[in-house]
Amino acid sequence: MDMKKFLKILVFISFSTFIYANTNLFNKAIKLYENQKFEDALKVFSDLSKTYKNWQIFYNIGNCYYRLGDLPRAHLYYLKAKRLNPRDKNINYNISVVREMLKLEKREQGFIVRITEFFAERELKIIIIVLNFILVLSAFIWLNFRREFFFWLIPFSLIFFLFFGVIFYTKCEFEKPGKWGVLLESTSVLSGPSQTYKIIAEVPAGMDVEILEKEGNFVLINLPTGQGWIEESKIEKVIK
């Protein structure tokens, strides 16, 4: 028993030391950024992003790319950060700055899309779990104690549960790995998955697009004007 406790404490201490060491790395990257060593800072932040998923890491990577003049990648990483923390003012401001510099048009968004972008995936999960629990609890209390309040709480919580369920489903569909990407350079959109097809549009660098399917080295993307094929190497996915 004592040995077990000792091992637990040992694991906890070593894990804490590991986390602490990486927080130091994070702060070191910030120092590098402050000293205008953006490439070095980018490298450290990128290494951290392989293990940790804090939005701040993606946001800072976006800042490094911005300072290095790679605006499409900066946009990509800001979108990654926004996915984790959608209502952060700094992220949204930087996105607007980058989009303005990339001369990207303002997207017209419907109500459902705006709601899906308003909540992070994790937040939606918590809301759904809580609503589900309220629904079950209301049913239980009403069956046992016949309290009228809980009877009315059942349809209310059910409506909200279904609403957020739809939002969550839409978000998951859109943010499926490999379904959302940013163009790293301006490229031609073709009518088919090969260079022999006709060019039907030009897409500016930095634009974020929905990826519908893949065929060979080409992906089918959804554009406001329709659909078209582009080379997969020209696009980097927000969620891999």
């Binding site: 986390i19 940790y52 701040q56 700094n90």
Partner: peptide
């Protein structure tokens, strides 16, 4: 663009939720 964001604690990608 606005300045860097700071972090208090680094989080791994997956959690129980």
């Amino acid at each position: 663009i606005r300045y860097l964001a700071e972090v208090k604690k680094l989080k791994k990608s997956s959690n129980s939720l």
